[in-house]
């Protein structure tokens, strides 16, 4: 298990990305899966910075990366814990894809990426903190 604490500041997103790349490699996560997980981490953290409100800056954001045992399917679990305003991305709905450039809206792209790139997502509030768990698998479950 690998852990990192970051502040709710934009430059910290790059520290989080570097940590994920380093520890994902140690956990033998395939490179393309690390890249996708990095997109997910970046989107979740960027969303926190934009929409987490004043509370998100008062506590560190905690990141935890775990390997998932082969019995449950080879994969990895990333847990992001923060003290920002509650937001459950699991129940938030995606906007429809735009049919033309004039219809394109800038919102909702990050959540769509996270949904597309992850194999499982769970959200809960624990001790007044949001906890989002996202999973990726690269073999089928046995």
């Amino acid at each position: 298990m690998s852990c990192l604490e970051i502040r709710a500041e934009a430059p910290e997103l790059r520290r989080a990305s570097a940590w994920l790349q380093e520890h994902g490699e140690r956990l033998a996560v395939p490179p393309d899966q690390i890249d996708r997980l990095e997109v997910c981490l970046n989107e979740v953290l960027a969303n926190l910075l934009e929409h987490g409100g004043p509370p998100v800056g008062s506590q560190p954001i905690r990141l935890q990366l775990d390997a998932i045992t082969r019995a449950a399917g080879a994969g990895v679990r990333l847990v992001i814990s923060d003290g920002g305003l509650p937001f459950d991305p699991v129940v938030a709905s995606d906007k429809p894809l735009p049919a033309s450039l004039s219809e394109a809206s800038p919102g909702g792209l990050g959540l769509r990426l996270v949904r597309a790139y992850t194999d499982g997502m769970a959200y809960r509030v624990l001790d007044d903190r949001n906890e989002l768990s996202i999973e990726m698998h690269w073999t089928t479950r046995s």
Partner: peptide
């Protein structure tokens, strides 16, 4: 690396 903030920037200018 391309995040949604980069996509928004491109879409905004393309529009």
């Amino acid at each position: 690396f391309l995040a949604s903030v980069g996509l928004r920037c491109i879409i905004h200018s393309a529009k």
